[in-house]
Amino acid sequence: MTINVSMQVNGKAASVNVEERTLLVTVLREELRLTGTHVGCDTAQCGACTVHMNGKAVKSCSMLAMQAEGAQILTIEGVAHADGSLHPMQAAFKEHHGLQCGFCTPGMVMNAIDLVQGRPNITEEEIRHGLEGNLCRCTGYHNIVKSIAAGAKAMASAK
């Protein structure tokens, strides 16, 4: 059966008619063509699909689109500033080489932004623990950890 789902995505109203079983990530990628949100697994383990729902990081592959009815969704496409310049967390990933193939990157950045909210001095240990739901096969995490620590500071000072 087809249902209607309405939400705000990256600040814009979005309304789609989809099968009930449709996942949020499918709506984002296939209906709204926001292909920056990726699918890397089918068991909610890799975190490549992480987006923000009402300000909190969620895995968009493990929730139905209808669960996002009325929600504010932020995807990687909505993170940079309106002039195209990078958000401090994105800039930190670039500066510290926190990405290689780029596939896990959107999920990493979305999780990182949520993780460091109000924690400008987050420790390496806390960052590593906070990344337990995001897999990266390229970077060995070393530079992701550095990027997030730097991004946390940059986000705090940008406020």
Binding site: L34, T35, G36, T37, H38, T75, I76, E77, V79, A80, G84, L86, Q90, F93, K94, L99, C101, G102, F103, T105, P106, V109
Partner: peptide
């Protein structure tokens, strides 16, 4: 290449 990967503009 980072800008496109960091802004969701990669094309896989």
């Amino acid at each position: 290449e980072d800008y496109r990967f960091l802004t969701g503009a990669g094309q896989y």
